[in-house]
Amino acid sequence: MISRISDYYFVISQISFKEHKKRVSETNLGFLWNILSPLLYMLLMSNYYCNIITHDIENYPIFIFTGVNMVGFYRTATVGAMRSLVENKKLIIRTKWRLELFIYQKVFSAFKDLLYASIALMPLFYYYKIRLTIRCLIIFPVLLLTFMVIIGIGKVLAVLYVKFADIDYLYSLAMSMLPFVSAMFIPLEHFPENVQFILTYNPVFLSLYLARNCMVYGVPSFYTAWLKLIIWAVGSYSFGTYVFNKNKNVLASRL
């Protein structure tokens, strides 16, 4: 997997760069909007939730910021991957590039957004006096597992979307529910008991939980969370790749 990605890294990064450039073209602040937009979003969201929802969580804004970024990453990456093949129809027909390329490109693009948002997060970390410990490095395996989950889901969605365009609406419905079922702005303990149990199987919740523990709180997480996320990552990636490869021929003709 790694060698294949490095082969096409140049293409992926070029397409992503062009996409990002197009997004902020002709604006006054230009490139700055990549960082300003998530910053603005985080500030507004946290302002709202701090005022409306009563809470007893320390550093609640940071709690929300991390939630917003992780959920946003999942959403942008999977929705982008879903539409990637149909959007790039012309390119696929004309070139001999592997179809996975377009999916990886969308995930990479979403990851870049996550990086920009993290840059926006840095001054806020400083403001709320969050001290980063050595545990921060744990974010790398968390990200790797998250990538695997997203790529798997993205591949399945992409195949479905080519065959059955209505999946777009169904998936956007699921995405609208996502903030409420991944402890984005309410910590796990605030949910009723039976619901908590279900939530802990949500990969978005798991990624977010692990990320928060290592970056914000600097504490270890339950090994069960790691276990569940690893199972999700391996399962999702293998299933996604399997479905994708099985349907490759059909996809090319359908497009």
Binding site: E26, T27, W33, S37, L40, Y41, M45, Y48
Partner: peptide
């Protein structure tokens, strides 16, 4: 005249729906 309004509105609309 000012394309920035696209980003401002995108963020504002998300918070508006909650308000």
């Amino acid at each position: 005249f000012n394309r920035d309004i696209k980003f401002l509105w995108k963020n504002l609309s998300i918070i508006l729906v909650h308000m």
